[in-house]
């Protein structure tokens, strides 16, 4: 939390996690962020923000991670956070059929509220609960291909299985996609010129960053 240190980085990407309530979005983010698994984060109300810097091939990459609330009624609120996302992680629970079926609905929202070239990753969480599995890996794989997703991966926030890998693979892909433009705005809603004006006005304010 050192606020005076002006951080240098090569890339900045915005990643959003969506999916039904209870599939483990918060646990995944916290596992990635701090390496810990705690059952007591509590439900997410609205949107939580986390920042994590990783280094890949000597490149310093900053990830802005938005962890959204899964309950249906929060959708209208969380949707405004999809815009300008570079990647969306669609999370389901491999032991809950419903959470997988709903991915289709979540995808519909992604189509509506993000830019065209947003990277989509399908994540099946809780793969430590093999005996309770309801969704086969093959089924999810086929689904992800059908919907043109970048990848499908099964993870466990509890056992820390594949968590770092999924973020790192995703980030590598983002880097290669955006290797010629460093500060990419993926914002479909901005009128040209407006951003320049706003950036200028914003520049008058402080430089402290909070995480």
């Amino acid at each position: 939390m050192d606020s005076d240190e002006v951080e240098q980085f090569d890339y900045l990407f915005k990643i959003v996690l969506i999916g039904d309530a209870g599939v483990g979005k918060t646990c995944i983010v916290q596992r990635f962020k701090s390496g810990l698994f705690m059952e007591q984060y509590g439900s997410t109300i609205g949107v939580d923000f986390t920042m994590k810097t990783i280094v890949i091939d000597d490149k310093k990459i900053k990830l802005q991670i938005w962890d959204t609330a899964g309950q249906e009624r929060f959708k209208t609120i969380t949707q405004s956070y999809y815009r300008s996302a570079h990647a969306v992680l669609l999370v389901y629970d491999i032991t809950k059929e419903k959470s997988f079926e709903n991915i289709e609905k979540w995808l519909e929202d992604v189509r509506k509220y993000t830019g065209n070239n947003v990277l989509k990753v399908l994540i099946g969480n809780k793969c430590d609960l093999e005996q309770a599995r309801r969704i086969s890996t093959e089924k999810a794989k086929l689904f992800s291909e059908k919907y043109n997703m970048f990848s499908m991966i099964e993870v466990s926030a509890k056992d820390c299985c594949n968590i770092n890998e999924s973020f790192i693979n995703l980030t590598k892909e983002l880097v290669s996609l955006h290797s010629d433009s460093k500060f990419i705005s993926n914002d479909i809603n901005l009128v040209l010129g407006e951003r320049e004006r706003q950036t200028e006005e914003r520049g008058r304010y402080g430089t402290r960053e909070y995480r």
Binding site: G46, V47, D48, F49, M51, Q64, E201, R202, G203, R204, Y205, G206, T207, R208, E209, Y210, R211
Partner: peptide
């Protein structure tokens, strides 16, 4: 707040 970088993520996490 006013010391914070005037960008949504920073202001959001400061205030929440």
């Amino acid at each position: 707040v006013m010391d914070c970088q005037c960008e949504m993520p920073f202001v959001h996490s400061l205030l929440s």
